[in-house]
Protein backbone atom coordinates (compact mmCIF):
# COMPACT_ATOMS: atom_id res chain seq x y z
CA UNK A 1 0.00 0.00 0.00
CA UNK A 2 2.08 2.78 -1.29
CA UNK A 3 0.84 5.38 1.10
CA UNK A 4 3.37 7.88 -0.07
CA UNK A 5 1.96 8.28 -3.57
CA UNK A 6 -1.73 7.68 -3.28
CA UNK A 7 -3.09 7.90 -6.80
CA UNK A 8 -6.61 9.03 -7.45
CA UNK A 9 -8.45 6.12 -8.99
CA UNK A 10 -10.64 6.29 -12.06
CA UNK A 11 -13.90 5.72 -10.21
CA UNK A 12 -13.20 8.42 -7.67
CA UNK A 13 -12.30 10.90 -10.38
CA UNK A 14 -15.37 10.16 -12.47
CA UNK A 15 -17.55 10.31 -9.42
CA UNK A 16 -16.26 13.71 -8.34
CA UNK A 17 -16.77 15.11 -11.84
CA UNK A 18 -20.24 13.63 -12.09
CA UNK A 19 -21.19 15.30 -8.83
CA UNK A 20 -19.72 18.60 -9.99
CA UNK A 21 -21.84 18.42 -13.15
CA UNK A 22 -24.84 18.87 -10.88
CA UNK A 23 -23.09 21.43 -8.68
CA UNK A 24 -22.47 19.02 -5.85
CA UNK A 25 -19.38 18.02 -3.88
CA UNK A 26 -18.26 14.98 -1.94
CA UNK A 27 -19.15 16.64 1.35
CA UNK A 28 -22.43 18.13 0.19
CA UNK A 29 -21.22 21.65 -0.58
CA UNK A 30 -21.85 23.49 -3.81
CA UNK A 31 -18.95 24.41 -6.07
CA UNK A 32 -18.50 27.88 -4.63
CA UNK A 33 -18.81 27.06 -0.93
CA UNK A 34 -15.97 27.18 1.54
CA UNK A 35 -15.83 24.68 4.35
CA UNK A 36 -16.69 25.77 7.85
CA UNK A 37 -13.95 27.74 9.61
CA UNK A 38 -13.20 27.43 13.31
CA UNK A 39 -10.57 29.35 15.22
CA UNK A 40 -8.92 28.51 18.52
CA UNK A 41 -6.43 31.05 19.84
CA UNK A 42 -3.83 31.18 22.62
CA UNK A 43 -3.02 27.49 22.37
CA UNK A 44 0.67 27.58 23.19
CA UNK A 45 2.03 29.36 26.25
CA UNK A 46 5.61 29.49 25.03
CA UNK A 47 4.64 31.42 21.88
CA UNK A 48 3.73 35.09 21.86
CA UNK A 49 0.73 34.39 19.70
CA UNK A 50 -0.81 31.12 18.55
CA UNK A 51 -3.86 29.73 16.84
CA UNK A 52 -5.31 26.53 15.45
CA UNK A 53 -7.53 27.04 12.45
CA UNK A 54 -9.92 24.36 11.23
CA UNK A 55 -10.99 24.60 7.62
CA UNK A 56 -13.43 21.73 7.58
CA UNK A 57 -11.25 18.81 8.66
CA UNK A 58 -8.03 20.53 7.64
CA UNK A 59 -6.16 21.76 10.68
CA UNK A 60 -3.19 24.08 10.88
CA UNK A 61 -1.41 25.42 13.95
CA UNK A 62 0.50 28.67 13.93
CA UNK A 63 2.85 30.05 16.54
CA UNK A 64 4.37 33.52 16.54
CA UNK A 65 7.59 34.09 18.38
CA UNK A 66 9.21 37.52 18.69
CA UNK A 67 12.99 37.64 18.93
CA UNK A 68 15.40 40.55 19.09
CA UNK A 69 17.67 41.09 16.13
CA UNK A 70 19.52 43.68 14.11
CA UNK A 71 17.53 45.34 11.30
CA UNK A 72 18.33 44.97 7.61
CA UNK A 73 20.78 47.70 6.64
CA UNK A 74 18.47 49.16 3.99
CA UNK A 75 15.53 49.38 6.43
CA UNK A 76 17.13 50.53 9.68
CA UNK A 77 13.80 51.55 11.24
CA UNK A 78 11.78 48.46 10.40
CA UNK A 79 11.33 45.16 12.13
CA UNK A 80 11.15 41.99 10.09
CA UNK A 81 8.91 38.99 9.69
CA UNK A 82 9.68 35.46 8.65
CA UNK A 83 7.13 32.81 7.73
CA UNK A 84 8.00 29.13 7.98
CA UNK A 85 5.80 26.15 7.14
CA UNK A 86 6.39 22.54 7.93
CA UNK A 87 4.33 19.90 6.17
CA UNK A 88 4.31 17.95 9.37
CA UNK A 89 4.36 14.18 8.83
CA UNK A 90 1.67 14.10 11.51
CA UNK A 91 -0.83 15.40 9.07
CA UNK A 92 -0.83 13.15 6.06
CA UNK A 93 0.36 9.69 5.07
CA UNK A 94 2.20 11.21 2.11
CA UNK A 95 4.49 13.49 4.10
CA UNK A 96 7.75 12.09 5.32
CA UNK A 97 10.09 13.25 8.00
CA UNK A 98 13.09 15.03 6.59
CA UNK A 99 14.15 18.28 4.99
CA UNK A 100 11.30 20.45 3.67
CA UNK A 101 10.00 19.42 0.30
CA UNK A 102 9.26 21.80 -2.53
CA UNK A 103 5.56 22.09 -1.88
CA UNK A 104 6.17 23.02 1.76
CA UNK A 105 8.54 25.77 0.70
CA UNK A 106 6.03 27.05 -1.86
CA UNK A 107 3.35 27.13 0.82
CA UNK A 108 5.59 29.02 3.24
CA UNK A 109 6.47 31.57 0.60
CA UNK A 110 2.86 32.00 -0.48
CA UNK A 111 1.84 32.70 3.11
CA UNK A 112 4.84 34.95 3.57
CA UNK A 113 3.81 37.03 0.54
CA UNK A 114 0.21 37.39 1.68
CA UNK A 115 1.35 38.63 5.11
CA UNK A 116 4.26 40.75 3.91
CA UNK A 117 2.76 42.43 0.87
CA UNK A 118 -0.51 43.26 2.57
CA UNK A 119 1.59 45.32 5.00
CA UNK A 120 -0.78 44.05 7.63
CA UNK A 121 1.93 44.35 10.27
CA UNK A 122 3.25 47.80 10.82
CA UNK A 123 6.98 47.03 10.63
CA UNK A 124 8.02 50.40 11.99
CA UNK A 125 6.08 49.52 15.12
CA UNK A 126 8.55 46.64 15.56
CA UNK A 127 11.60 48.92 15.70
CA UNK A 128 13.23 49.32 19.11
CA UNK A 129 16.45 51.28 18.46
CA UNK A 130 16.78 52.52 14.92
CA UNK A 131 19.63 50.81 13.13
CA UNK A 132 20.42 48.57 16.09
CA UNK A 133 17.59 46.51 17.54
CA UNK A 134 14.25 45.46 16.13
CA UNK A 135 11.74 42.68 16.74
CA UNK A 136 11.73 39.83 14.28
CA UNK A 137 8.44 37.96 14.21
CA UNK A 138 8.92 34.29 13.45
CA UNK A 139 5.59 33.00 12.21
CA UNK A 140 5.79 29.22 12.09
CA UNK A 141 3.05 27.03 10.70
CA UNK A 142 2.58 23.28 11.09
CA UNK A 143 -0.09 21.27 9.35
CA UNK A 144 -1.89 19.00 11.82
CA UNK A 145 -4.38 17.36 9.52
CA UNK A 146 -4.06 17.78 5.78
CA UNK A 147 -7.58 17.41 4.44
CA UNK A 148 -6.89 19.65 1.46
CA UNK A 149 -6.30 23.33 0.77
CA UNK A 150 -3.54 24.08 3.23
CA UNK A 151 -2.95 27.27 1.22
CA UNK A 152 -5.93 29.12 2.64
CA UNK A 153 -5.75 27.46 6.04
CA UNK A 154 -2.15 28.66 6.50
CA UNK A 155 -3.00 32.31 5.79
CA UNK A 156 -6.01 32.08 8.08
CA UNK A 157 -3.94 30.55 10.88
CA UNK A 158 -1.17 33.13 10.48
CA UNK A 159 -3.62 36.04 10.59
CA UNK A 160 -5.47 34.58 13.57
CA UNK A 161 -2.20 34.08 15.45
CA UNK A 162 -0.91 37.55 14.58
CA UNK A 163 -4.16 39.19 15.58
CA UNK A 164 -3.80 37.71 19.05
CA UNK A 165 -0.03 38.12 19.35
CA UNK A 166 1.26 40.05 22.32
CA UNK A 167 4.93 40.90 22.11
CA UNK A 168 6.95 41.56 25.24
CA UNK A 169 7.89 45.11 26.08
CA UNK A 170 11.62 45.79 26.32
CA UNK A 171 13.81 47.60 28.76
CA UNK A 172 17.05 49.23 27.73
CA UNK A 173 19.84 49.28 30.30
CA UNK A 174 23.16 50.76 29.12
CA UNK A 175 22.25 50.07 25.52
CA UNK A 176 21.44 46.40 26.27
CA UNK A 177 17.94 45.47 25.20
CA UNK A 178 16.03 42.77 27.07
CA UNK A 179 12.44 41.55 27.35
CA UNK A 180 10.31 42.42 30.35
CA UNK A 181 7.19 40.66 31.61
CA UNK A 182 4.92 43.36 30.20
CA UNK A 183 3.29 42.63 26.85
CA UNK A 184 1.55 44.66 24.17
CA UNK A 185 -0.42 43.72 21.05
CA UNK A 186 1.11 44.39 17.65
CA UNK A 187 -0.47 46.91 15.33
CA UNK A 188 -2.26 45.35 12.39
CA UNK A 189 -3.34 47.59 9.54
CA UNK A 190 -5.00 45.04 7.28
CA UNK A 191 -6.26 41.47 7.32
CA UNK A 192 -5.16 39.42 4.32
CA UNK A 193 -7.33 36.41 3.48
CA UNK A 194 -6.50 33.84 0.85
CA UNK A 195 -9.10 31.97 -1.19
CA UNK A 196 -8.04 29.23 -3.56
CA UNK A 197 -9.98 28.02 -6.59
CA UNK A 198 -9.28 24.67 -8.20
CA UNK A 199 -9.86 23.59 -11.74
CA UNK A 200 -11.26 20.07 -12.06
CA UNK A 201 -12.15 19.18 -15.63
CA UNK A 202 -14.28 22.11 -16.80
CA UNK A 203 -15.30 23.04 -13.31
CA UNK A 204 -13.94 25.70 -11.02
CA UNK A 205 -14.39 24.81 -7.36
CA UNK A 206 -13.52 26.72 -4.22
CA UNK A 207 -11.60 25.25 -1.30
CA UNK A 208 -11.06 21.68 -2.47
CA UNK A 209 -10.80 18.87 0.02
CA UNK A 210 -7.92 16.43 -0.41
CA UNK A 211 -9.67 14.01 -2.73
CA UNK A 212 -10.62 16.86 -5.03
CA UNK A 213 -7.22 18.43 -4.64
CA UNK A 214 -5.37 15.38 -5.87
CA UNK A 215 -7.37 15.17 -9.10
CA UNK A 216 -7.39 18.93 -9.71
CA UNK A 217 -5.62 20.05 -12.87
CA UNK A 218 -4.65 23.43 -11.49
CA UNK A 219 -5.30 25.83 -8.66
CA UNK A 220 -5.12 29.57 -8.26
CA UNK A 221 -4.91 31.42 -4.94
CA UNK A 222 -5.59 35.08 -4.35
CA UNK A 223 -4.68 36.88 -1.16
CA UNK A 224 -6.79 39.97 -0.71
CA UNK A 225 -7.16 42.63 1.94
CA UNK A 226 -10.04 45.03 2.40
CA UNK A 227 -8.75 47.18 -0.46
CA UNK A 228 -6.10 45.37 -2.44
CA UNK A 229 -5.13 42.16 -4.13
CA UNK A 230 -1.85 41.42 -2.41
CA UNK A 231 -0.73 37.97 -3.49
CA UNK A 232 -1.48 35.37 -6.07
CA UNK A 233 -0.16 32.02 -7.10
CA UNK A 234 -1.15 29.57 -9.76
CA UNK A 235 -0.13 25.99 -9.18
CA UNK A 236 -0.69 22.60 -10.71
CA UNK A 237 0.11 21.21 -14.11
CA UNK A 238 -3.02 22.42 -15.90
CA UNK A 239 -3.87 25.96 -16.96
CA UNK A 240 -6.64 28.50 -16.56
CA UNK A 241 -8.43 30.41 -19.33
CA UNK A 242 -8.17 34.16 -18.96
CA UNK A 243 -11.86 34.45 -18.12
CA UNK A 244 -11.54 31.76 -15.47
CA UNK A 245 -8.78 33.76 -13.78
CA UNK A 246 -11.02 36.80 -13.61
CA UNK A 247 -13.95 34.76 -12.30
CA UNK A 248 -11.80 33.11 -9.66
CA UNK A 249 -10.51 36.50 -8.56
CA UNK A 250 -13.98 38.04 -8.26
CA UNK A 251 -15.11 35.02 -6.32
CA UNK A 252 -12.06 35.14 -4.03
CA UNK A 253 -12.70 38.78 -3.20
CA UNK A 254 -16.32 38.07 -2.29
CA UNK A 255 -15.47 35.04 -0.18
CA UNK A 256 -12.56 36.79 1.52
CA UNK A 257 -14.70 39.68 2.66
CA UNK A 258 -17.15 37.27 4.29
CA UNK A 259 -14.36 35.39 6.01
CA UNK A 260 -12.86 38.68 7.19
CA UNK A 261 -16.15 39.65 8.77
CA UNK A 262 -16.28 36.28 10.50
CA UNK A 263 -12.73 36.79 11.78
CA UNK A 264 -13.52 40.27 12.99
CA UNK A 265 -16.43 38.92 14.95
CA UNK A 266 -14.53 35.96 16.41
CA UNK A 267 -11.39 37.85 17.37
CA UNK A 268 -12.86 41.30 17.98
CA UNK A 269 -10.95 42.98 15.17
CA UNK A 270 -11.55 46.46 13.86
CA UNK A 271 -11.92 46.39 10.07
CA UNK A 272 -11.15 49.67 8.42
Amino acid sequence: MADFKVVANAIEKNHIIKLLDSDRRLDGRSKSDMREIKIETNIVGTAHGSAIVHLGKTKVICGVKAVLSAPWSDYPNKGSIFVGFEASPLSSPSYRAGPPQDHAIELARMTDRAIRESECINLEDLCIIEGEKVYTLNIDLYSLDDFGNLYDACVLAAVAALATTKIPEVEIVDGNVSFTDEVRPIKMDAYPISVTSYKIGDHIVTDAEFKEERIADARISFGTTQHYIVSGQKGGKGAFKSQEVMDALTHSIQKASKIREFFAEELGLDLK
Binding site: M1, A2, K5, V6, V7, N9
Partner: peptide, 18 residues
Protein backbone atom coordinates in the same frame (compact mmCIF):
# COMPACT_ATOMS: atom_id res chain seq x y z
CA UNK B 1 -6.52 0.31 -7.03
CA UNK B 2 -3.90 -0.35 -9.69
CA UNK B 3 -0.93 1.75 -8.64
CA UNK B 4 1.82 0.58 -10.91
CA UNK B 5 2.06 -1.37 -14.12
CA UNK B 6 5.09 -3.61 -14.57
CA UNK B 7 6.03 -5.67 -17.59
CA UNK B 8 4.06 -8.74 -16.57
CA UNK B 9 2.36 -7.68 -13.37
CA UNK B 10 0.48 -4.93 -11.60
CA UNK B 11 1.01 -3.50 -8.16
CA UNK B 12 -2.35 -3.05 -6.51
CA UNK B 13 -3.19 -0.93 -3.49
CA UNK B 14 -5.29 -3.19 -1.31
CA UNK B 15 -5.33 -0.87 1.72
CA UNK B 16 -3.15 -3.19 3.75
CA UNK B 17 0.42 -3.18 5.00
CA UNK B 18 1.62 -4.72 1.75
Amino acid sequence: YVEDVKLTSWMVNIRGPY
